[in-house]
């Protein structure tokens, strides 16, 4: 048998044709071990800028650590199922960084979480988004040929010093049908991108309908009590 030699333990040489089955077996073991791990999806997608009249507000945004690195882990419930890790943090910040500048005159990232004593940029208010819950469904769970992602957000709108102005929740949903030659991971990614788009659409179209936000906007436009002749703040030129 011709062929090159490879070095074995204790300096002895092993013919390559004998080493090959060992390498293949090792590769197979690695592949089998990898198959035992959870399915992992780091959500990636493109998000468009909203087409709307901008609200004349200088809004700050603060993404906390949990939001920036948000991931969802679902442990396998049986031998027949596999666990899932869905990492949405990067896509979340990408989406909100695209949607918010399309909604407000100015958007700035805060240096720190707004609270008393924290030095920050001067803004009208700071938006702090949180992902409170994420659920997913794949065809093996439901017998319906769609992949689904559902999220519940919680938003805090606070003053630059951390004074609470409004707090509300919002849901987002995305689904995608099964497709030929589409992996579970690709389908879950697509469903997550649809859910993120839905979150942006829901937020953009309903922000000014949140009662506490409406009150805050009304207060900004009203003249301060007891000050005669004060000019009101310019009315919002944008309407949603």
């Amino acid at each position: 048998m011709s062929g090159s030699m490879t070095s074995g333990p204790e300096g002895q040489t092993i013919p390559r044709w004998r080493a090959l089955p060992r390498s293949l077996a090792l590769l197979l073991c690695c592949a089998l071990l990898a198959a035992c791990g959870p399915n992992e999806v780091a959500v990636k997608g493109q998000f468009p800028t909203p087409l709307m009249n901008k609200l004349p507000l200088n809004i700050g945004v603060w993404y906390d650590e949990g939001f920036r690195t948000h991931e969802f882990f679902d442990e396998a419930k049986g031998r027949a199922e596999s666990g899932w890790i869905v990492k949405t943090g990067e896509a979340q910040t990408q989406m909100w960084d695209t949607v918010l500048p399309g909604m407000f005159t100015s958007v700035v990232h805060m240096k720190g979480k707004p609270e008393p004593g924290q030095m920050n940029q001067a803004v009208d208010a700071v938006l702090i988004p949180h992902v409170d819950e994420l659920q997913y469904a794949i065809p093996t769970h439901t017998n319906v040929k769609v992949y689904e992602i559902w999220m519940r957000y919680r938003f805090e709108l606070v003053g630059p010093g951390g004074k609470p102005l409004a707090e509300w929740t919002m849901t987002a949903y995305g689904k995608t049908p099964t497709a030929f030659l589409q992996s579970d991971e690709a389908a879950v990614n697509l469903a997550a991108v649809v859910a993120l788009r839905d979150a942006g659409a829901n937020f953009a179209t309903n922000f000014t309908r949140v009662p506490q936000v409406q009150d805050w906007l009304a207060q900004r436009q009203a003249p301060p009590a007891g000050v005669a002749g004060t000019q009101p703040a310019p009315a919002a030129e944008g309407s949603l």
Partner: peptide, 12 residues
């Protein structure tokens, strides 16, 4: 749909 986001999403 992208050119008119968010007005032609399933929700809107």
């Amino acid at each position: 749909i992208n050119a008119l986001y968010p007005w032609f999403e399933p929700r809107t």
